[in-house]
Simulated scan of single mutants.
Amino acid sequence: MRRLTTKATPWLFLLVPLAFLLTFTYAPVANLVWYSLTKWDGFSPEMPFVGPDNYAELFTRPDLFQVFFVSLFYLASGAVQMVLALYFATVLSFNVRFRAFFKGVLFFPYLINGVAIGFVFLYFFQPGGTLDSVLRLFGVHGQHLWLGDPDLVNWSLAGVSLWRYLGLNFVLFLGAIQSIPGEIYEAAELDGASRWRQVRHLIVPGIRPVIGLSAILVVSGSLSVFEIPYIMTAGANGSTTFVIQTVKLAFQFNKVGLASAAAIVLLAIVLLVSWVQRRLVPDEGADLV
């Protein structure tokens, strides 16, 4: 009896988390799959079953899938973001002046509400606004349509995303770097290793799992970006992302079934990317268990 109680105790502790997981994660996903197989408008009590027709429409209409090209801007921004975050995390992991101040400056944008950031940068990108005023100091005159020009809007929005989420990757990298034992750095310095060699041969290999995690966040975030472009442009001038389009399909055109199929496709892509990343950069800690 005591042995049975010992085995059952961990499951009793897991009961509530598993209940929340089933209620708020797996049950909604199951409903989403069902909706994707129907032609539901979101209001009618009737849900005509159409099978895979929504997925067929999704993959045969280029206009529904071409919005993925917008994600390339955010993917490029995310790559730059990772490089900058790793650079600043490496520099601030050593003893430099005002280190705590710079850590706060880098992480602070991530703490700001996304809606507030969107409205602030609306003024920043106004023709003749803050950005144009700064550029005039460097001899670049004129008023630019940063959010109105299809050639500039996605770069502008991706730049805002870079500024906002740089702090998250910075904190992840900084924590991973500081978890490397200090004795390793001391031994490297005694052997005459330069800062660059320490970064290349100690820091980067030592935080490779965290770099892999950051890569997953960057790729999934670039595919599912919504908040900033929706607030600043509402998808106008060629800035519509896949998620913005899905929201419009569901709530503007009342095509909940098609929108659900789009959401399932996005979920499948994110899971596939995560699986590929795990295969390319396996968790070294898992081999030790």
Rank of each mutant, 00 (worst) to 15 (best):
P109A: 01
L272S: 11
N54W: 02
F68M: 09
A76Y: 06
S156C: 10
R278Y: 12
F101M: 12
E284F: 09
A215W: 13
F108R: 05
I269W: 03
L190T: 09
R164K: 13
M232W: 07
P109T: 01
L157V: 05
V115P: 11
R99Q: 07
V50T: 11
Q66T: 15
I180D: 15
V204Y: 12
I177E: 05
E284P: 03
I244V: 03
V33S: 13
L168V: 05
R195P: 10
G104L: 07
R278L: 11
G78A: 06
F73Q: 05
Q277S: 00
A79M: 12
Q252G: 00
V247M: 09
V120I: 13
W275N: 01
V70I: 12
V210R: 05
I180Y: 15
S220H: 04
V270Y: 07
Q198M: 14
P10D: 01
W163S: 02
I203V: 15
L217F: 15
A89W: 11
W196M: 09
L166W: 02
N237L: 04
I112Y: 04
L258D: 04
L86I: 04
F68R: 01
F68P: 00
V219A: 07
F65R: 14
K39L: 14
R99M: 04
S156T: 09
L86C: 00
F101I: 13
F101E: 05
L266T: 10
P209T: 01
L272V: 07
Q277Y: 02
E57R: 15
F20N: 00
L267Q: 01
G167H: 12
Q277K: 00
I180N: 14
E186R: 12
W163D: 02
A30H: 00
T9C: 02
S77D: 12
F124C: 01
V115D: 12
T5G: 08
F43Y: 13
S77V: 06
V171M: 06
P52N: 09
K255G: 00
D287T: 03
G128I: 07
S214A: 10
A250E: 09
E186W: 13
A100T: 14
P45Q: 14
A76T: 08
W40N: 08
R164H: 02
Y230G: 00
I112K: 01
L271Q: 08
I216T: 07
L217M: 15
V153R: 14
Y55H: 03
H201F: 14
V199S: 03
S161H: 12
E227Q: 00
L84V: 04
I231C: 06
V204G: 00
I180H: 15
